Computed example of a mutant assay.
Amino acid sequence: HLARPFGATCLGIQRMSKAYQAFPVAASTLMQSCPRTVRALSVLVHSEGDGASRFAQRISVGKHRILADEPVSVGGGDEGPSPYDLLLSALGACTSMTIRMYADRKKLPLMGVDVSLNHEKVYAADCADCSEHVSVSTPANSKSNKIDRIERVITLHGPELTEGQRKRMLEIANLCPVHKTLEGTSVVVSSLAPAPADAAVTESLSLQIDLTFGSRPHELSPDFTVRRVLPYRLRRAVGPFVFFDHFGPIDVATAKPMDVGPHPHIGLATLTYLYAGALMHRDSTGAKRKISPGEANLMIAGRGVVHTERGAEVVDAIAADA
C-alpha cells in the first residue's frame, strides 16, 4: 500500500530535493522538520483469465483500481490501457508533477502542463539522437539490436513564461524520477509466492475492503421510510453515487405500497433497480414507464425534473387486470 505518514509539504520537499539540487540550503533546512519515513509502494495485479478478454488485468494500488488489457490486434479485448500505455502514463504523470513542483517552488507563472508520449522500438544505428543511450539499452558493441525510444513532447501553458524559464523546465523534466529509472539500470528480482488455496485466490487478490458500514432508517415522507447507506459520515460518496437507499421488501396485501410523491431534482441522476414487485415512473418531461424486476430506470435531471415513483398505481392496475 502507498504509505503517506507525513504531510504533503514534507512529501513535496523530499521529492523535489531528490529530483534536483536547485535549492539545497532551503531543502536542507526544511527537511530537518520532516520525519525520516520510508515511502513504500505495493502494486497488486490479478488475472482471472475467464472474462471477455483473456489478457485483462485488475490492478490495485492502495485504494485505487485500474484495468489493463491488450488491444484487439494482439488478441486482447481493449478493456483498458496496455502495459506500455501504463508505462508512458507513469512517465508523463511524473514529468508533469516534477515540473509543477519546480514551478511552484520558483513561483513561476505556469498555468498547466501537457505531456504527449510515443513509444517505438528502433534499431540503434537508425536512431541519431539515441547514441548516448545505446550503452544502457543494448551491448556497447551491438548497434544492430533494437532499442526502446520514447518521444516526449511537453507543452507548457502560461503566456507570461519567459523563454529561459521554459528551457529550464525542460531540463527539470529530465530529472523526473521515473525518467531517471527508465534511463538508468534497473534490477527486477522475481520469486514465486507459496501457492494459496484455490478458493482464496480471488478473495485475496481482487477483494480489498476499505470500510464497512451499515444502513440506517431515513424518513423521506410520513408514509415512506428507506434504509439509507450513503452519505455516511466517513464516506460521503462511492464513485459517482452520493445517495444510496434501499426499500422493502413489503407485502402489499397488508402494507401500503411504495409511494413517492412529486418532488424535484436538479443537476443529478437517479438510478432505480427493482428486485421484486413493480413501480410506475412518471416525470415532468412526459415520460411514463412501468419498472419491472431486473430493470433499471435512469433519470437524468439536468436543469430540473419533477418525478413520482408509485407502487399503488401498479398494484391497482394488476388487481383490475385480474
Rank of each mutant, 00 (worst) to 15 (best):
I147Q: 01
E151R: 04
V153W: 05
T155Q: 10
L156R: 05
L156I: 09
H157V: 10
H157A: 07
E160R: 05
T162H: 00
T162D: 06
Q165F: 01
R166T: 13
R168A: 15
M169Q: 09
M169L: 14
L170N: 06
L170I: 14
E171R: 12
E171T: 13
I172M: 15
I172W: 14
L175E: 07
C176A: 14
P177G: 13
P177F: 11
P177W: 09
P177L: 12
V178F: 10
V178P: 11
T181L: 13
T181E: 09
L182F: 15
L182Q: 13
E183A: 10
T185C: 12
V187Q: 14
V187P: 04
V187D: 13
V189P: 00
S190G: 11
S191F: 15
L192N: 11
A193R: 12
A195Q: 04
P196F: 05
D198C: 11
D198A: 15
A199P: 00
A200F: 00
V201R: 10
T202L: 06
E203Y: 05
L205S: 10
S206T: 12
Q208K: 07
I209L: 09
I209Q: 01
I209G: 01
I209R: 04
D210W: 10
L211R: 07
L211F: 07
T212I: 15
S215D: 08
S215M: 13
P217T: 06
P222V: 13
D223M: 05
D223G: 10
R227D: 15
R228W: 05
P231C: 11
Y232W: 11
R233L: 03
R233A: 04
L234M: 03
R235F: 08
R236Y: 08
A237V: 02
A237N: 03
A237Y: 01
V238I: 14
V238T: 04
G239H: 01
G239L: 02
G239Q: 02
P240F: 06
P240K: 06
V242C: 07
F243C: 07
F243T: 14
D245P: 01
D245T: 00
F247T: 03
F247V: 10
G248K: 01
I250D: 02
D251S: 14
D251R: 02
A253M: 08
T254M: 09
A255V: 09
A255E: 15
K256W: 01
K256T: 10
D259W: 12
D259L: 11
V260Y: 04
V260I: 15
G261A: 10
H263Y: 07
H263L: 14
H263P: 06
P264L: 03
H265M: 08
H265L: 13
H265Y: 01
I266W: 03
I266H: 01
I266K: 03
G267D: 08
T270C: 04
T270I: 13
L271K: 07
T272I: 14
T272H: 04
Y273C: 08
L274F: 06
Y275A: 10
A276F: 02
G277Y: 03
G277N: 13
A278W: 06
A278T: 06
M280P: 01
M280G: 09
M280E: 11
R282A: 02
D283Y: 03
S284W: 02
